[in-house]
Design a protein around this nucleic acid. Structure first.
Lengths: 349, 349
DNA sequence: ATTAGCACTCATTAGATTAGAGTGCTAACA
DNA sequence: TGTTAGCACTCTAATCTAATGAGTGCTAAT
């Protein structure tokens, strides 16, 4: 037998063990693997191989007389090298479109629905990172006077992403002045993000003299106030109850409690997930890799959501380490593609 | 001893038992009550009274050799007739204002913060029922053209409640037309709620002839589209993890699971809570009174949130039946007053 | 009306026993 | 040299038993 033959056999056994553990939530023994292998190898041989796999850190034993359980490293190897990459079924894709489609008028709603769909189809938690105007290119700015000293500042990034905030102004402003001011800002936009726009205005303000200085300053003041309450991005997390109901948590109150604490601190999770949202497709974080206190027993998958070429946000699934990686990978990838397609098509109009 | 003396004694004992149970989460025995009563009565006498209380349905025994636990009826009697009504402490009030104040520019954000504050201070779940423009009086309508066939419809109920939706229109519209149309709708508003406005427009549409018919129809179409994706109201629920960590759930996976299922169906809970939001202050629903599947082991308190005289929404706390009613009653009442004051003051400007 | 005394109930806990799942090792075998 | 049957060993999980003790309800005395 050649070296690669041995390796293949090892991997096959690792795969079987991991998949059996994912299905059963309990340790897997040599006998079970032998049966699955249709007796091409005896339990004793399999025990030897399982011993090796444990030695190399892919498996571990909860206790002497138990079967084996995958380690984080085992899962990682499985995800990277062993499991087969599937595509989402057309049937599921259709279901997703049905859930998501009606919400395509509003990006936030769309991603909320997407995360709800992920939660529903995965029976675990679904999440989405939703961009806001604050970090996007603004296409149009409008001012609507509400009274003498109040105007509504409407920031339009694109048709699905709009923010409006009431701004109090010191000097009264007529309707015409408001229109003129908005027109000025609109000429300044030129494909800049909010942040860049503000910086550009600040520079101009320092450079300009006389009466025009006031126009720029006024614009800047209003924008600053309007954006002050707008968050950088929103994080949506749904279906956490399904997560807590998974056997690893339901059977162990302490683990459940740790999980809930971890989920409560959404910022920490968001910060971690943000690092994984990249144009290169689905990413997987397993167990300790998650690096969020309380979520050591969990894994998550993320995928980017793009409009055209620009990644604008992300979606994903959070579950126990013992999750169905092939299925969920396909699911997350499918939802990501589906949403991206919707956004891109919308963008092109 | 007169009849009322006996009654007072009974109530005192019921009070002691309920408060002890709230504090300890376990059944309360006669000995404990006797000690609390500073030996003015012997445990045997107390047992007799406890027997009466059980006979009348205020207490029950988990099993023969356990102490007593309050029934729903017991809690109800306690809440209605026994417990003393406190006021929130100035210290807590200050804390709440600190948490809520920065969000007063936006009603939704304000109530979100309020529910978060309730969750934090109660160590249980806090919730809020947030009104939207759809069920409110609209003060001003504005149309912002986004392109030839798209306009942004901005509905302003008041400075804290604004909704904007992109609407696709069949016939192109110039900027001037948009302004004129908005002006027309604004003259029609006159203190009507969205729903009433639509109905009034529909009536006018049927009555009008000729060119003006189109103006009305067009307005109606746009408003209908704009409002189609707007929900009637929003429901915010925070701090559910603290709720699941309460001993009654943490020690019993089945109960925890039922609770999580119940919380997942937010609509059912919202529908129930809506019935309790009335101008007459704090209301309490206990155990089975909640009438939401899965939440039989919970109670909630609600209080209205008003702007001036009009109730616009509500806030409250959801926890185990075994909750500190006097404290939470004061808390919910305090937050309700605090928010209502903010809104009213804002409204008066 | 109150209470001391007491028998009784029953959940909880600890300890002991057992069953069995799964292992690692050894020695035999292909 | 890789594979495998056999077997002793380990440790969990389940089941049982007994002891503990918290709390009750009843009775009879005050």
């Amino acid at each position: 037998m050649s070296v690669t033959d041995f390796e293949q056999r090892r991997n096959k056994i690792l795969e079987l063990i991991i998949e059996a553990h994912i299905a059963s939530a309990s340790p897997v023994g040599s006998e079970f693997v032998a049966r699955k292998l249709r007796s091409s190898l005896s339990p004793a041989t399999i025990r030897n191989i399982m011993g090796e796999l444990e030695g190399d850190g892919y498996l571990s034993q909860p206790h002497t007389s138990a079967g084996r359980v995958p380690t984080d490293r085992g899962y990682r190897f499985y995800v990277d090298s062993v499991m087969d990459v599937r595509r989402i079924s057309l049937d599921e894709l259709r279901q997703i479109e049905l859930l998501i489609r009606p919400a395509e008028v509003d990006l936030e709603l769309l991603l909320e629905r997407a995360s709800a769909a992920l939660a529903a189809l995965s029976q675990q938690a679904g999440f989405a990172v939703v961009p806001t105007v604050k970090q996007s290119r603004v296409r149009q700015v409008e001012f609507v006077p509400l009274g003498v000293r109040k105007i509504l500042c409407v920031l339009i990034a694109n048709d699905e992403m709009i923010a409006s905030h009431v701004v109090e102004i010191v000097e009264p402003m007529t309707r015409d002045e408001a229109v003129a001011l908005a027109r000025f800002i609109n000429t300044e936009l030129g494909g800049l993000s909010c942040r860049e726009l503000m910086e550009s205005l600040e520079r101009r303000m320092l450079a300009e003299r006389d009466s025009f200085y006031h126009v720029v300053k006024r614009s800047l003041d209003i924008l600053q106030q309007a954006l002050s309450t707008e968050p950088e991005e929103r994080f949506v997390l749904e279906g956490t109850s399904a997560l807590v109901s998974q056997p690893e948590f339901a059977n162990d109150p302490r683990k459940a409690h740790a999980l809930l604490k971890g989920l409560d601190a959404e910022e920490a999770l968001l910060a971690r997930i943000r690092q994984d949202i990249a144009p290169d497709g689905v990413r997987v974080r397993i167990g300790r890799e998650v690096q969020v206190a309380g979520l050591e027993a969990c894994s998550y998958l993320t995928a980017p959501v793009a409009a055209g070429d620009a990644v604008v946000g992300g979606i994903g699934v959070l579950g126990p380490k013992r999750m169905d990686y092939p299925r969920l990978r396909a699911l997350v990838e499918g939802v990501s593609r589906c949403v991206t397609e919707l956004l891109t098509r919308w963008d092109e109009r």
